[in-house]
């Protein structure tokens, strides 16, 4: 499956490489747009020394890890919420006659490395943050695991958004509210939001496990909301649980697929 994905991605990239200028412009463009996010944080710190009780390098750390998870998930699987477009165009029928899961085919459809601009930007911010934070390796091991769980969480939300469209063919924006919303939300320390919202994103839509709970562990911080300590190790559980829910929803949706009358 992963091999098929990579082979298809290479083919799409090669096809896009026939227009190298537009590819370069898009990469630079996405780097600049996301750079403006960072500028917003810089502006905040020009007037104060902390944001929600966190120092600039700590905020950059949260921003960088959330950004990496989001950008990688978006690049690899962000397309799966385009389901209703594919249904209407009839391309979903075409995917169903191939011996590869339509989920993979949709995810890799028109794959480009263009979104790597966002990943690179987030990785740069993270590198700068880590250079200032001196996280000991006893806690730093959590960083790659956290980014991976974040990718799984965002992918699961996109998948849920896609699965919903099997039933409601005109509701593609539901998913975006959660993924892009979630991507924005987790850029900042959750302390800037109210505690009700934090409880929601901890226990219901488990976005707090993208970078907040494991991030508190890595930064060696007590939980400002007084939630139990063991929650910070629960990111893999949350990611796995949401992935299972998303997978089941997708399969249930696929069984109800009704194509279009020609």
């Amino acid at each position: 499956m992963a091999r098929t994905y990579v082979l298809l991605a290479v083919t799409w990239t090669r096809a896009a490489a026939q227009y190298p200028l537009s590819m370069a412009l898009l990469t630079v463009g996405s780097f600049i747009v996301t750079g403006l996010d960072m500028a917003a944080i810089a502006v905040i710190f020009a007037h104060t020394t902390s944001l929600g009780g966190f120092t600039l390098p700590e905020v950059m750390f949260l921003y960088g890890t959330s950004g990496m998870s989001f950008a990688l998930a978006d690049m690899l699987f962000g397309n799966v919420d385009k389901l209703s477009q594919h249904v209407r165009a009839g391309t979903f029928d075409s995917m169903l006659i191939r011996p590869v899961s339509p989920f993979i085919q949709m995810a890799v459809d028109r794959f480009t490395f263009q979104r790597l601009g966002r990943t690179a930007q987030a990785a740069t911010v993270l590198a700068i943050a880590l250079a200032h934070l001196h996280v000991p390796w006893q806690r730093a091991w959590m960083i790659p695991l956290m980014v991976l769980c974040g990718i799984v969480l965002f992918t699961a939300i996109w998948t849920l958004g896609g699965a919903i469209q099997f039933l409601l063919t005109d509701a593609p924006d539901v998913a975006n509210a959660f993924t892009y919303g979630g991507g924005q939300l987790t850029q900042y320390p959750l302390t800037v939001y109210g505690s009700d919202l934090v409880r929601t994103v901890t226990f219901i839509v488990p976005l707090a496990f993208v970078n907040w709970q494991p991030g508190l562990f890595i930064l060696g911080r007590p939980d400002p909301f007084g939630l139990p300590y063991w929650l910070r190790f629960l990111a893999p559980v949350a990611a796995l649980a949401l992935a299972c829910v998303a997978g089941l929803a997708w399969r249930a949706g696929l069984r109800r697929y009704r194509s279009t009358g020609s």
Binding site: T4, L8, T11, A15, D93, S94, I97, Q105
Partner: peptide
Amino acid sequence: ARRIGVVFGQRTTLWWDLPLKDSFHLIRLL
């Protein structure tokens, strides 16, 4: 899918923006 071939005359199962030979290449991979 490996034992059956399907053609829809009204719409293509190929990739609209890709050259025909790239479509065949994708099919080989799939």
